[in-house]
């Protein structure tokens, strides 16, 4: 009997070692959250959408997890509350929101993120959002523009070091010229 059980365990391990399955793809729960995120919010008769960059980043994250139906239900409920709140402000655009209204919106984002054990943080102006995983990994980052700075940024230390070398070079060259002139003047005198 023991041999049969051991054989079955080995067989199971052997079979699973052939195919590596990841928590990939968008399950029905994740799809419902994405669909909810894509739907417009009516603000004073004006349809406002969550930017594609946010939704795409959420989708990328959902591809690495398996959201349960309970989690999706909680997140969708929070999105619903956020919608109702935005509608109730009487404003027509997100940019018209006051800082306290932005903070409240941020609180909804934090509540939704915490369902997935993520934390949301905003910049001091609460315009930029960053969602971070438990281990500190960035999941969503809207604190930078879509198009990044791709020129080499020099550190101040580099500038100082390179400038220092240049100054040293100039001083050495000047010293050489001066001492050369002095030597030739002395030779002329003697």
């Amino acid at each position: 009997m023991k041999r049969i059980i051991a054989f079955l365990i080995v067989l199971t391990v052997f079979c699973f070692s052939f195919t590596t399955a990841f928590a990939a793809g968008i399950n029905a729960n994740e799809a419902s959250v994405l669909s909810n995120m894509r739907a417009p919010v009516s603000m004073n008769g004006n349809n406002v959408y969550i930017p594609a960059s946010y939704i795409n980043q959420a989708e990328a994250n959902f591809n690495t997890i398996d959201m349960t139906s309970a989690q999706a239900s909680k997140i969708n409920s929070i999105i619903g509350q956020a919608r109702a709140f935005l509608k109730g402000t009487g404003k027509s655009k997100i940019s018209e929101l006051s800082s306290s209204e932005r903070q409240k919106l941020m609180n909804y984002a934090s509540a939704a993120a915490s369902v997935l054990k993520l934390s949301a943080a905003a910049g001091s102006n609460t315009k930029n959002v960053k969602i971070i995983s438990k281990n500190g990994g960035v999941v969503v980052d809207d604190s930078n523009n879509v198009i990044k700075t791709t020129g080499q940024q020099q550190s101040p230390v580099t500038y100082i070091a390179v400038s220092g070398l240049a100054v040293l070079f100039i001083l050495s060259a000047a010293g050489l010229i001066i001492s050369g002139k002095k030597a030739s003047a002395y030779e002329k005198k003697s």
Partner: peptide
Amino acid sequence: YAGSFIPGYGKTILVAGHNN
């Protein structure tokens, strides 16, 4: 860019790199 997609996904792949 994390707000775009990986190859094979059927959507936009936006890639940045330093110019120098």
